[in-house]
Simulated assay, not measured.
Amino acid sequence: MLVYSFLIPFLLLSPLSAKVTYFNLENIYGPYCNAQNTFTLDAGVVRYAGTPWLGKCELNLQSCCLPMLNGSSLAANLSISTRFYIHLLKPPTCRTEYVIIEAETGEMIPIDCNTTEGAEYYLDTERLKVIYHRLEKFPISKFSMVVTPLKFKTRMFTPCGFDCFTDTYCIDRSLVCDRYQNCPNRVDESHCEYSQNRPSLSFHGKVALFAVLLVIISVDVSSILICYFCCGISNRNRLGSKDRKSAPTNIEEGAAPRTPLLQSTTPNDNN
Rank of each mutant, 00 (worst) to 15 (best):
R134T: 01
L128S: 07
P139N: 05
R127N: 10
F165S: 15
V130R: 01
I140Y: 00
V146F: 04
K142E: 12
K137S: 04
T125N: 08
A119I: 08
S141F: 00
K129S: 08
M145N: 01
I140L: 13
R173H: 09
M156S: 14
D163C: 07
Y132K: 02
G118W: 04
G118I: 10
T158M: 08
L123W: 13
E126K: 10
R127T: 14
I140F: 01
D124Q: 14
C170Q: 08
G161Y: 10
G118A: 12
L135N: 08
V130Q: 02
F165N: 15
T125I: 09
R134V: 01
T125D: 12
K137R: 13
I140A: 09
V146Y: 04
T166H: 11
G161M: 07
D167Y: 15
N114M: 07
S174K: 12
V147E: 03
T148C: 06
K151G: 06
T125K: 07
E117M: 10
L150E: 10
G161D: 12
V147C: 03
F152R: 15
A119Q: 09
E120G: 03
S144Y: 00
K137M: 14
K142T: 14
T166M: 10
D112K: 01
C164D: 06
K153T: 12
I131Q: 10
T125S: 15
F165T: 11
T166W: 13
R127A: 13
G161C: 05
T125E: 08
L123N: 07
Y132L: 03
P149S: 12
D167Q: 15
I131S: 14
E120A: 04
G161H: 08
K129T: 09
S174L: 05
D163T: 09
E126W: 06
D172R: 04
P159T: 07
K153S: 10
V146L: 12
C164W: 05
L128T: 05
N114I: 01
L128A: 03
D167K: 15
D163K: 10
F162A: 07
L128C: 05
P139Q: 02
C113H: 03
F138V: 06
D167S: 14
T154Y: 03
T125V: 09
R155N: 11
P159W: 04
Y169W: 15
E120Y: 02
I131K: 11
R173C: 04
R127C: 02
D172I: 00
V147F: 06
T168R: 15
K151A: 15
R134L: 00
